[in-house]
Amino acid sequence: MHETAFQIFVNALLANNFVLAMFLGLCPFLGVSGKLETAFPMGIATTFVMLVASLCAYGLNLLLTTFHLEFLRLISYIVIIASSVQLVEMVLKKYSPTLFRALGIYLPLITTNCAVLGVALFQTAREYDFIQSMTFSFGGGAGFTLALVLMASVRERLQLSSVPEVAQGTALSLMLAGILSLAFMGFAGLGG
């Protein structure tokens, strides 16, 4: 069974959306989705880290397999992700200080985003080649951004409506996520 790059992309973006179908990266999804203006940059930054991490993880996996050191995979992946977040931070600081300030505290927190580690682990488990890995991580990142933006838009609208006091806060966000996830189930089978 050989998936084309396009199938992988559509699958990661919609049918198997990282947040709404695979439950990856829920902490930022619930935490940062309050406002649209923080949700979108957060999605972009995460996508970028995913791409860098996926690239590094691909190279690293080749190296580890050559030396039969597969049991070190998890430890090396997490170190790679932490350093690529640091790298992204430094590059952003140098070339785009405005964006760096806008993202603030959210940047270092990407290290503990399970969607990033998830990309690295899944691409290894499914034995994707280079092109497939990059498409997969880009699709996953785009899907994460899409879910975050959708959620933030709905929550901004909800601030204007009267919600029963009991349901306010996390309970309401989870119900919303459930409804979004239900909607995304309609994409099932799209990527073939």
């Binding site: 996390t170 309970a171 989870l174 459930g178 996830s181 189930m185």
Partner: peptide, 17 residues
């Protein structure tokens, strides 16, 4: 299915609140 997870956890939180 995935939506069920969100709904059940949301209901538990609702109950506790």
């Amino acid at each position: 299915l995935p939506p069920g997870g969100f709904f059940v956890l949301g209901s538990w939180l609702l109950l506790f609140s």
